[in-house]
Computed example of a mutant assay.
Amino acid sequence: MIKAILWDMDGTLAESESLHLKTLIAALARHGVEAGEEMHPLVFGKTGREVHALCRERFGLTVDFADWSMFRARTYLENAPALVPRPGALEVYRAAKAAGITQAIVSNASRMLLEANLRALGIEEPSLVSISVNDVRNGKPSPEPYERAAWLLRLTPEEVIAVEDSPTGARAAIAAHMRVLAWPSDDEGAALFPREAQVVRSPRELAEALGLDPAAL
């Protein structure tokens, strides 16, 4: 019996990957580096610190993380109110809530950006458990974010299920001994997930895998 659903945020609940990429391209341009869509597969699923380290190594940047992350955060927050949910995601989220299933958010984003996403999607609640990269020592693919969420919910790994759009996040939940539903953006992305993850390809399939009635969407 599923007692809780642990949702990833970026790309899973919110269509925010393009905004993260926009802030990265702007930050690189600020330091004289022209970049575009080719950066997305290089940074997909990584933490802000990991992206910063990658850019320093790849482009020879000397900017420190504090300045880099502040610029990216400001750019993100300026645009966050216009964020939209991934098609079908909030319908499944609300159906699970109506069914009485506890839900939590487990993200690799900073607390500031995660809160902005929650506001944009309209799912802020005082009781909602949410884990940001600021709440753990190690972000995904470490199991720590998922382990912490389960601990806060007072549940065992066997009692929860994780929903992820990235292989990085899926590996984190699998390492935490949780069942994982992989909801990739396309068929090409589906092939990158660990074999332990169950791939779903639509909101309807996601709802069914969560034990929800698709008619409730």
Rank of each mutant, 00 (worst) to 15 (best):
I2M: 12
M9F: 10
G11R: 00
A14V: 07
A14Q: 01
A14P: 00
E17P: 04
E17M: 06
L19V: 08
H20M: 04
L21Y: 01
L24E: 13
I25L: 10
I25D: 04
A29W: 00
R30D: 10
E37M: 05
E37P: 01
H40P: 00
V43C: 12
F44R: 08
G45N: 04
K46D: 02
T47E: 09
G48E: 09
D67C: 14
S69C: 14
F71S: 07
T75Q: 15
T75F: 09
Y76P: 02
E78I: 14
E78M: 13
E78D: 15
A80H: 08
V84I: 15
P85I: 03
R86S: 05
P87H: 05
G88R: 05
Y93G: 12
Y93R: 15
A95R: 03
T102M: 07
A104V: 00
S110G: 12
L118F: 07
R119I: 09
I123S: 08
I123C: 10
P126A: 05
S132C: 05
V133P: 01
V133R: 08
K140F: 05
P141S: 12
P143V: 06
Y146N: 08
L155Y: 02
L155A: 09
T156V: 14
V160S: 05
E164Y: 14
T168C: 07
R171S: 13
I174V: 15
P184F: 09
P194L: 11
P194Q: 08
V199Q: 08
R201W: 07
S202H: 13
S202R: 12
R204S: 14
E208F: 13
A209I: 06
A209S: 11
L210G: 01
L212Q: 04
